[in-house]
Design a binder for these strands. Sequence first.
RNA 1: GUGACCGUAGCUCAAUAGGCGGAGCUCUGGAUUGUGGCUCCAGUGGUUGUGGGUUCGAGCCCCAUCGGUCACCCCA
Length: 434
Amino acid sequence: MPENYRALQGFKDILPEEQPYWRLIENTASEVASLYGYQRIETPLLEDTTVFRRTSGEGTDIVEHEMYSFDDRADKEGRRQNISLRPEGTASVVRAYLEHGMFKLAQPVKLFYMSMPMFRRERPQAGRLREHHQFGCEALGESDPAIDAEIIGMLYQIYTRLGLKNIRVNINSIGDSNCRPQYIEKLKAYYQPLLTDCCDDCQIRFHKNPLRLLDCKKPQDQAKIAAAPRITHNLCEPCQEHFASVQRYLKFYGVPYDIDTLIVRGLDYYTRTVFEFTSEIDNVALNGGGRYDGMAEIFGGPQTPGIGFGVGIERVILELKRQGIEPPAEPKPRAFVVYFGKTQDMKDAATQLTAELRQAGIKAATSYGERSNKAQMKQANASGAEFSIIIGEDELANGTLSIKQMQVGQEKTENKQVQIKRDEIIPYLTGHQA
RNA sequence: GUGACCGUAGCUCAAUAGGCGGAGCUCUGGAUUGUGGCUCCAGUGGUUGUGGGUUCGAGCCCCAUCGGUCACCCCA
């Protein structure tokens, strides 16, 4: 294969053998989302770059060097719009909410999106691709902490239904525009005298994104982090109450959670509640989410609280595989039609029968071309079909079909083969259905 | 963006010390011209990622490049 005709680095084909995992996740998540009253929405892959830049934040890695952005072709006046492949889903959904005036509907408006591709130009590694897919939910127009708990509870229920064990739920509150700036000042004041002793990255973080100081994994900085002032101890009164209420409501959903005051999310738009679900095996986040009460105003819309999350589907699949969870397989055909003869009549009879079965809603397969009888039986076997239906000279002559049961051990052929009238085939097959 | 390891058939992998590129699986055909699975036989399938270099001779050594995997960073 010439190397220029390969999928791009970090982009993956999703092959048939992977599809059962996707189906399982898509079905499970959609059902649970519907259970909680979320309605599906789909937004375009491309947006004006500012949709993402303004919301995620200028200083974040995602907008700074991970977005696929480019100038569109010039319009009549010669202007070029800079557009981007979406790196995350929330901003687009909020944009759609405002664009379609959904703030005039009964609030909250609960939306979910399924398997929407996301693009970030990072170096690929385990569980990280340049194109990945997310399932996500957004609840807009409601600031009640009960909905924070609801959304976390829903997520937990999805993982439970998928059969995943040992999922760790970490929550935190990062305050709002009222109390967070004060906390950041406090954090900087704490770090100022320690700075010379910090790792190189932390030196940069101190100026660029002080909250990230808490995220450092270098051993030399762990003691500093442990003694650093905590955001949860520096929340303003309303934020404190909100966080306490989230925790109270969370109990009703039976979610075993931990408060992790070190959670700092990678997007600037979060306020108050933030959360991450991770597997216990390693530290990879399966999803991330939180509240974003200021986003609608960034777009020039009415003040609209919101909360949501995005689940990395590829990461959940990795976790399903690690935990040995097998998704339901694609159903096998009920019948495989073979023709023991090379005449056109024979081929016609086989084709007609196959078409009839399918139109009757019976999953049927058949052979193509000129294959030996044995080869066709081999195909029938490999297809996993429950029955093979044999059309040969005799059957054609006396209007019958030979039906052979395939998946019944190594008995002799005579014991598992019967001949029936041609027009009894559909009742025969449906009668055998479980 | 930084670093480490790895590229041989569709897949999983061999190939002594640098000396004629192989096996298993898959696929196709056959072992009684109307019957699968188990077994046996045969066949298809390769520019050894690509381009240079060293050598009488390179899958193997050297350089470059592309790709993959993993880690860091960051994130889902």
